[in-house]
Design a protein around this nucleic acid. Structure first.
Lengths: 195, 195
DNA sequence: GTTTTAAACGAACGCATGTTCAGATAACGG
DNA sequence: CCGTTATCTGAACATGCGTTCGTTTAAAAC
């Protein structure tokens, strides 16, 4: 029973990625089989190969798309203001972007070791670019005398770790709204760099 | 060829756990087979079942041991001093303990979803106890007027995330010594809670 | 109304998985 | 020196894996 209604490729393709995203995030790449993904989509396993050359590419595409979108969102920020304003923009963007995409974030941080070396290098490069953006802001603030940071490299890692940690507990509809969470984290980030 | 020298159970047992620890951390629980662990130990797969009832127990034991040791180390700290001193002790202990056990920490954070529901509940309870310790310190500091923290629960999560992030980049023998890293992170933690 | 083609089926491939267990081996206690 | 026992082997089990491919279906094109 193929094609029970209309052309499917532009519907099934996104559904395959959505199912892979959800299942990889929930159980982990290695623990999810192509047959599970197919069952979620409502299709036989063989049909998945109309949409991905293999399982590895499915993972890589999800991660690359996520990192590319993150970088694009970051570049949309015009850091014309002061370092403090730039840092606030970065902080709020990071929190908003990450809290909107818990599954993508989870995969991007947990499944790096399941990438082939070539694919890993690509993702790492994207991640490095993102970290560089924050480090640049911190260095500008230090140079201008606005921030008090002894080691910008470490401060970058510390701030990103702190912000990304929001995904371990924040759920929309919980005790606090995203706006409140943004404010609390921004207060902590600001103080931690002495701004 | 069994027992080529002396009794092995008290040697092989720890070696099984060590191999599992290293392999789970490197490739992930789901991606590591019992035969890989056995090969690392230098034994056939069947022999592993003299030391663990199954693969799941191997993972659970590693995580439970780690969390129990962490809590024990935490309880060895006498927080007789001020909240600020208690927070500094907590910060330095966390950094030291975690940087000494990168594999255990990695597993404890990444493999939660591969625990059975019963085992997961046990580990989560241990983690909650550890987080409670920090939250108690923060609340004491707020009450005494030493800290400036709007939401102790969130501040707890933020600080722990920031500190645990040290494991994503810190390697002994790198640019900075552990003592230097401790100082930098303590500065940032102290400032972030307004102490 | 016929032909083309996108899309999915469903069986098959070789191989790996966690776990069990009867049998072999070698150090130990007597 | 012999019998016991802790320890490990090695084969087997059912099941599942990622991937391939000839075949079937039904919508689209003409």
């Amino acid at each position: 029973m193929a094609r029970t209604q209309g052309s499917h490729s532009d519907i099934t393709g996104p559904r395959v990625r959505a199912a892979a995203l959800q299942l990889f995030a929930q159980h982990g790449y290695a623990a999810v089989s192509m047959r599970q993904i197919a069952r979620e989509v409502g299709v036989q396993a063989g049909a998945l190969y109309n949409y991905t050359p293999d399982k590895q590419s499915l993972l890589f595409d999800l991660m690359q798309t996520h990192m590319t979108e993150l970088l694009a969102a970051r570049e949309d920020l015009q850091d014309s203001g002061s370092p403090t304003e730039a840092l606030e923009n970065f902080t709020r963007l990071h929190l908003r972007f990450h809290s909107e995409r818990p599954d993508e974030v989870f995969i991007a941080y947990m499944e790096l070791r399941n990438l082939t070396p070539e694919n890993f290098a690509v993702i790492e490069e994207l991640r490095r670019k993102y970290e560089d953006a924050l480090e640049t802001i911190l260095r500008a603030g230090v140079e201008k005398g606005d921030f008090e940071v002894s080691d910008p490299k470490i401060a970058t890692m510390a701030v990103i770790a702190m912000l990304t940690g929001v995904n371990t507990w924040f759920r929309e509809g919980g005790r606090l709204s995203l706006a409140e969470v943004e404010q609390i984290y921004w207060d902590m980030v600001r103080k931690s760099v002495g701004a």
